[in-house]
């Protein structure tokens, strides 16, 4: 594992290199893509990106948790969580180049 961290700036730069738009517009579009995905998920819609993976919203019921430090019981309220499942293509791609 090389341990580099990729951020929005790197994605914007890649978009800038690949598509003939300005750096500013490339950055704005990366943001828009992420916003569209967030909006869909916030509405409970799942997002499937072929050959990458899918994001789905799952409803969790209430359960009793425990404060690991004090041992005290605390209720964990029902909530919605996001789960990501990588596609087979991505899984294979990641394992191919080591």
């Amino acid at each position: 594992m090389s341990g580099q961290t990729i951020t929005r700036a790197d994605l914007s730069e890649a978009v800038y290199q690949q598509v003939g738009l300005s750096r500013n517009e490339s950055a704005a579009l990366v943001e828009t893509v992420l916003d569209e995905i967030c909006d869909a998920l916030a509405q409970g819609e799942s997002v499937k990106i072929s050959s990458f993976g899918s994001f789905a919203v799952r409803q969790k019921g209430q359960r009793i948790g425990r404060n690991p430090k004090t041992g005290e019981e605390v209720p964990i309220l029902p909530r919605r969580v996001l789960v990501f499942r990588a596609s087979h293509v991505l899984r294979e791609f990641i394992n191919k180049r080591q």
Partner: peptide
């Protein structure tokens, strides 16, 4: 490009 870039990064272990 966005998803390819993420995939490439993960393949490098980033």
């Amino acid at each position: 490009t966005i998803f390819d870039e993420i995939s490439e990064a993960l393949a490098r272990g980033d």
